[in-house]
């Protein structure tokens, strides 16, 4: 296999900045939950695209891709990586509408799911595999992430009830010079397949294995690339909460400044988009230098843990 690489990443942060208190009113959170989310989880605000539909989030993300016109003709596939499988009206087809609106109707398009919030990293890996069998060395895959949130999501995602609507577009190519994928690891713990379980022994067991399980996965991914944790310049996490990442950093003996946690309080957890939104933020803050190794990590309910190691 040739090396999968990210040719470009664009992230869309909606204009509407919603405080945790405002979100709590909409989502029906109790005062106690609100305190817990702010104090322990480090949540503060999220971005919501009020009035926007799913297709609008995708169009906005595509619009953030630098040099889209230069890439357009090379985009052969488009994948919408989803946390929750499509649940709109059958006729609505937001992915195809978004592609038509952005002049990308020629791309073969489909949605990918069942790794929940880690479906985005799966999509990057699969994009590389698609390109390996495509035959055109210049072909690209557009990986789209980001979803609308609704009150019922709170019932599906008890660990992070306040979700954001930021979205991202990522162009995946082969053998590019920038952001090469060195390793990808994914692990599903099938005993946690009931995604709405919020209490009881299963929920407790998941909570207990969450940090050690993620730590193991990160260690294995780094080792698979022939590196050590010391080689990591940055970890781009999913923005589920601050406390779990802080504990994970302690367990891995990783300095906290190697974790990009800024967006937890700024955008909240945005389904599959977090690693890409965080990548854009890291570039804005000039946190990645050529040759730096960084790791994207996500955990999806169900329960799938995924990590991807890249070299900038």
């Amino acid at each position: 296999m040739s090396a999968t690489s990210l040719a470009a990443v664009g992230s869309f942060l909606p204009d509407t900045d919603v405080t945790l208190e405002q979100a709590a009113t909409v989502l029906g959170l109790t005062d106690q939950e609100l305190k817990r989310y702010r104090r322990f989880f480090g949540l503060d605000r999220v971005r919501w695209a009020t009035g926007a539909r799913q297709e609008d989030l995708l169009v906005a993300a595509i619009g953030q891709l630098p040099d889209l016109d230069a890439y357009r003709g090379r985009i052969r596939y488009a994948i919408h990586a989803r946390t929750i499988e499509p649940t709109g009206a059958y006729s609505s087809q937001p992915l195809h509408t978004a592609l038509a609106r952005t002049g990308l109707g020629h791309a073969q398009a489909f949605a990918l799911s069942q790794h929940a919030c880690s479906s985005g990293l799966l999509a990057v890996d699969l994009a590389g595999r698609l390109l390996d069998t495509d035959g055109d060395p210049d072909a690209l895959v557009l990986v789209l992430t980001g979803e609308k949130t609704y009150p019922h999501v709170a019932r599906f995602m008890p660990a992070a009830m306040v979700m954001g609507e930021s979205s991202a577009a990522c162009l995946v190519g082969r053998d590019g010079e920038r952001d090469r994928v060195l390793a990808y690891t994914t692990r599903t713990y099938g005993q946690f397949n009931a995604v709405t379980v919020r209490s009881g022994p299963q929920a407790a067991a998941f909570e207990q294995m969450y940090i050690p399980g993620l730590a193991d996965l990160i260690r294995d991914t780094v080792a698979q690339a022939g590196l050590t944790l010391d080689d990591l310049r940055l970890v781009l996490p999913h923005n589920v909460n601050r406390i779990s990442w802080t504990r994970l950093a302690r367990l891995l003996d990783l300095p906290l400044d190697r974790l990009m946690l800024d967006n937890i309080a700024r955008t909240g957890h945005c389904f599959c988009a977090d690693p890409f939104v965080n990548y854009s933020r890291a570039r804005e803050l000039d946190l990645l230098r050529p040759g730096d190794h960084y790791l994207m990590a996500s955990v999806g309910l169900g329960a799938t843990f995924s990590a991807m190691l890249l070299r900038h």
Partner: peptide, 23 residues
């Protein structure tokens, strides 16, 4: 409310990769 990936992973031997394509 059930992860198809998790459900199958729990019931099938080994560590199969499970994913879904739609839309």
């Amino acid at each position: 409310s059930t992860s198809v990936a998790g459900y199958l992973q729990q019931r099938l031997p080994g560590d199969p990769l499970v994913l879904a394509v739609s839309e």
